Amino acid sequence: MQLISKATLQIQKPIAEVFEGIVDPTKMTKYFISESSGPLETGGELLWKFAEFPDRYPITEIQLEKNRSISFVWDPETVVNIVLEALPDKSTIVRVTENGKDLNDENLKWLINNTGGWANFLACLKAYLEYGISLRKGAYEFMRK
């Protein structure tokens, strides 16, 4: 049995704006990561840094379908898929799945943490795109101690 982390949220912005908010590092650093070595581009590889953690995370096997989907690997056992769906009111549904881990106690903890992490990503994306604010600012300072 494979575990799948899932999170979904509707964002009140057009699909092209949501897509760019995810692939453009100048935008992503305003709501989710603190640094990126480049944009998400098909076939590319890059590094992400989060302000709260000392490590840099390699992002590999990047695949994009403009204004439709984004996929990448940042854990050798999993694939992240982000699918965008335009709605008639010009809003966008964003669905994130991350799968590939086998069912065991350690991976159940991963499932809980990553499901919460992707829900946080979506909330941060929504807050930034709709209101221009960063929900991460000051949210994880306690983790540095």
Rank of each mutant, 00 (worst) to 15 (best):
D24S: 12
T29K: 13
K90T: 12
F32M: 13
K6Y: 04
T78C: 15
T115K: 02
K13S: 13
L135P: 09
I93S: 07
L64H: 14
L129D: 09
A127Q: 00
Y128S: 03
E52L: 06
S69H: 03
K126S: 13
K101A: 06
Y57D: 06
P39Q: 07
E65N: 13
L87S: 11
P54L: 10
L3T: 09
L87Q: 14
P88M: 07
K109L: 13
G138C: 08
I133F: 12
A139T: 00
E45Y: 00
L111K: 05
S134P: 02
L47D: 10
I59F: 09
S37W: 02
T60S: 15
D105E: 15
R95V: 04
P39E: 11
R56A: 15
I93A: 04
V83E: 15
N120I: 01
A16L: 03
V83N: 13
T78W: 07
S36L: 04
V96Q: 05
D102E: 15
E52C: 05
Q2R: 10
N107Q: 06
Q10C: 08
K137Y: 11
I59R: 02
W118T: 04
I82T: 12
K30H: 12
E35P: 00
I33E: 05
K66M: 06
L122C: 06
S37Q: 09
Y31K: 01
D105R: 10
L9A: 11
K109F: 08
Y31R: 01
K90L: 14
N107A: 03
G43R: 05
A16N: 14
T60P: 05
L129Q: 09
Y57K: 06
M28Q: 15
W118K: 04
K13H: 06
I93R: 12
T29D: 09
Y128A: 00
R144S: 12
P39V: 01
S69L: 08
Q2Y: 07
N114Y: 08
Y140Q: 02
F121P: 00
V79P: 00
V94D: 11
Q63L: 11
W110E: 03
V79F: 03
N113S: 11
T97F: 01
I15Y: 05
I133R: 07
I70Q: 10
G132R: 01
S91N: 08
L84S: 09
V94M: 10
L3M: 05
E130P: 06
G21W: 00
G138V: 05
S71Q: 15
Y140A: 03
R136H: 08
E130K: 04
I59P: 02
K49D: 10
I82D: 09
P76H: 05
F50G: 05
G116E: 10
T78R: 07
I15T: 14
N104H: 07
L103N: 11
G117P: 04
V79Q: 14
T115W: 04
F53K: 13
L3N: 12
E65S: 11
E20I: 00
E35Y: 06
V18W: 06
M143A: 14
P25T: 01
G138W: 04
T60G: 03
L40K: 01
